[in-house]
Structures are given as C-alpha cells and as structure tokens.
Design a protein around this nucleic acid. Structure first.
Lengths: 251, 251
DNA sequence: GAGTATTTGTTCGTATGTATG
DNA sequence: TCATACATACGAACAAATACT
C-alpha cells in the first residue's frame, strides 16, 4: 500500500506517526496560517484526500481528531468549519505579566491553583534563584484560561524565606503580581526567558485539555525585583495550537 | 526531577503516534533536561521498559530510532550513551544575528542557500514589509549548520527594489549581515519576533535531517533599518531538539 | 416544490503496521 | 523468531442532510 506517490502536496508515510495525525497537524497549521478563507470552511474531505494523496477515511480520522479537540466542527451536508481562527498572542518583555499581556484578546481570564507545597530547591533551581543549595522554596502549580479555554500550565518557585504565604496570597488574588504586592514587593521585572518545544506530557493533556501528541511551547523564565534579586523562577507550558509567543525587541 | 512526580510512568497509549516514537520523544526530552548523569549513559533497556510500562521490544525500537538520528549510540555490553547533551541556545534581541548569537557554542558555522527567486509579495507580506500590494520581493531559502549539524531552515523575503542582487551577495558571503553591507545597508535591528511550534513538515525533515514526527520551533521575524523601514521578513524553523530560543529582557 | 449536485456519515471487506509475550 | 491482538490505511459502495437551480 505504501507506494505513496505524493500527489499535489507532499506527504510521506512516516514510521511511528499515523498518517491521519500528520494530516491533522497540517490542517491545524493551515488554520494558524490563515490559509482558509474567512467563512472558516475548510475544503471538503474528498478534495483534502486528493490533495494529501490519501483515502478519504484518513482525512476523516484527522478531522475527527481535530473536532474532538474543539478546533473544527463538521456539519453533515454543509461542510467542516474552523471554530476559532486566531492564536492568543503572549508577549514577552521586561514587564511581562500574564493577564495584562493577553489584554483585550479575551473577555474573561481566570485560572486555578492546582497544587502548592514547600520543598528544598534542587541544585540548579537554587543557583537560578541565587539561594544556597538546599534552601527551601514554595512551588505553585497553576493553570491559566482565557474565555474558558486553557492556555497554559505553570510551575513557579519562590524563595520560602522572603515569600512565606505566597500561595495563600495567590489563591486569594489569582495573580502573581497581586500576591507579590500583598507581600510587600511592589514591582518586578522579567530578566530572562528560554523557549523550547516538546510533545505534551500526559499531565499537560489533562491540565490543558489537549489531545495526546499535541505540542507545548515551554517558557522557562526568571523574574527579579528592581535590584536584580531573583524572586520567581517559572516553567510555563503553553498549548502550541492556541498560543503564540511574541517578542518586541524595542530599544 | 522538578518535583513533577509523574511517579515513574505516565505514558498514555495515544492514537496516532506509535508507542516507540513517544518513548523516543521522552528520551530526547530527558536528554534536553539533563535528567541523565554526566557519563551520558541512559538506563538499561529493561529498566526503561519497566519505567514506561512497555515491552522491551518497544524500548529497543525507540533507541534504534534515536541511534539512527545520531542522538544515542549503543555499545554492546556497555550500554547506551547520549552523543551530545547540550541544546544550542539561540538568543533573540534587538541585535539578533545568526552566527554571532550562537557565538562560541560551536567551532564551525556554515549554511547553504537552497533556493532563491523573485516573486510578487502576498498581501500579508507586503503589509509586513511596508510595500504596496503585489510589489516584488526576493525570497531566499537557507539552511544553517553548527559543527555540521543542521539547526534551522529559513525563508527570507527582501524588497526587490532596494535589495536587487541580495541573493548573489548572500551566496558570496553566506551571511545576511554581510550581504546587506555589500548593498549599502550597514546596520539593521530586530523589530519583532513571533514564536510558535509545530510538527516538522516533510521539507523540514529533509532539510534538517529530522526524524519524521519531530518538532520545530518557528520564529517569524521582522528586521528594519535604523529608520524603522522594514528590510527583511523571515520565517525560521529550528529543530526543537537541538535549539533553544533565549530572550534577555534587559532594560 | 422537485430534482440534482455536493458534502458529511456509515458499513462492508482486505492488507499492512504496531505491540505484546 | 514466531504467533496473536489491535490500530492504521485503503477501496467501494450507500445513506442522509444541505445547497442550488
């Protein structure tokens, strides 16, 4: 069966990744690139099948997966439509804050505190936060949503000594900025951010409502107070099909 | 590490991605996170099989795939070893330049010009470059390598009118900075960068030597001259298991 | 309203790939 | 290496809802 003389578009059978999943990914990407017109209707299954050089069943499997994810919605006799075209744009700058950054892209922002605990810092973490090896830190696990859609999942670490009670403060205010303020820190800045990407772990799928095999953008970031003393290290995992990271390099 | 406590297992049997490929991706990620000790030796197959809750055959398939990619090297009787531990870190700032940024992380940098042509700008591209709709642009497709390893693949667009001959200049110098200089533009700055992630397309796999199903980090960037006039729009696709994007938010 | 084309939804069967023991 | 169970992909229908003339 594998004589896949890739017709119009180029798609090759790949070891280990099902054809329907590759097609789902390409459709998802086409949506992100605004390759479909404004009606939000994607080409009919027969046309996609021909374009990708696969059977219609295979396209249907891809569309079914995207429908389960809430990306597409099919209507018998009418066609298949994109549910939401735009990615949320998450800006990174010296003054990065979560909900402020997303600004007017959604009407409602909220989040959950999944878990919090105090633990000894690993060697790497202690170094990043400028603490002595084994110093205690408070870890806070959160999920952020915009208009009810989960966008990201974060693990944050704060020095215990300076920010005792930060998890309660966060729980009360649902905002790191506000929690810091409650504890006497009135301003902080983003020092550095590293961005990588990887497949979603089972935890990500659960917390973000992703279909397994989805991609997450991972931002590892360090915030400091105005004197340059580290106050927070965070690993944030964004659903890559919902969020774009945006960097303005202004002078 | 990281207190992530997925208790040893945490592998979901997902539709569309073969188990051995998921395991290969997790091993790749563990390497990126430095979860293996400095000897570079990964746990024996039986242990990995037990940890992931799969048959040893399946782990072997994953290790075989990573060995084909050059990520692992198995030695009979000794074990399986990581070939290169570190990700290359690609910094983004107002003065982003490709090889300067990678600096001392590799000994040899080079690249190929895959293809170049002149074409009319799409509506979106014209807007981004501040051109009239349908103005002509020069597109340049390149691949960049560090120490012989392909890191990224770029499509760049330059306004034809201002930068006629840029592809020849780039071909001669192998550097955008030098090519600009040849054409009389002595300095330029990075205005904006958008980062997303997606599965590698067949073209990426070919150009970057990726195994299918791999992930690419996609940076869409705009460079301007010192007067703020756009001079280059580029889409760069990085192999996510080789490169990390790094953002310093200095004042 | 009738008739036709278009589009998604469903059911067979068959061959190959993946994972286990 | 072999045998078994399940997922993936193909092909050829046909059914049902919608859109257009």
């Amino acid at each position: 069966m594998n004589g896949r003389t890739d017709g119009g578009d180029g798609l090759v059978r790949i070891n280990g990744v099902a054809l329907w999943r590759q097609i789902a990914d390409r459709i998802r990407q086409s949506i992100g690139n605004h390759e479909y017109d404004e009606t939000g209707m994607i080409p009919p299954e027969t046309e996609l099948a021909e374009r990708f050089g696969v059977n219609r069943h295979t396209v249907r499997a891809a569309v079914a997966a995207l429908s389960r994810e809430g990306v597409l919605r099919s209507e018998r006799g009418r066609g298949t439509f994109v549910v939401r075209q735009e990615l949320y744009s998450f800006p990174i700058s010296r003054r990065t804050r979560f909900s402020e950054g997303l600004g007017e892209q959604a009407r409602v922002f909220d989040g959950d505190l999944l878990e919090t605990c105090e633990e000894p810092a690993s060697a790497k973490l202690a170094e990043r936060l400028g603490l002595e090896a084994g110093a205690r830190v408070i870890r806070v696990e959160t999920v952020r949503r915009a208009d009810g859609v989960a966008l990201s999942r974060s693990s944050s670490w704060f020095p215990s000594e300076r920010f005792a009670g930060i998890s309660e403060a966060f729980l009360a205010t649902r905002s790191v900025t506000a929690a810091f303020r409650k504890l006497g820190l009135h301003d902080y800045v983003r020092k550095h951010t590293d961005v990588t990407a990887s497949h979603a772990m089972p935890d990500d799928c659960k917390a973000l409502g992703l279909s397994p095999g989805a991609i997450v953008l991972i931002a590892r970031s360090l915030n400091t107070d105005l004197d340059g003393v580290p106050v927070q290290y965070a690993v944030t995992r964004f659903a890559a099909d919902r969020v774009r990271i945006s960097i303005d390099s202004e002078a």
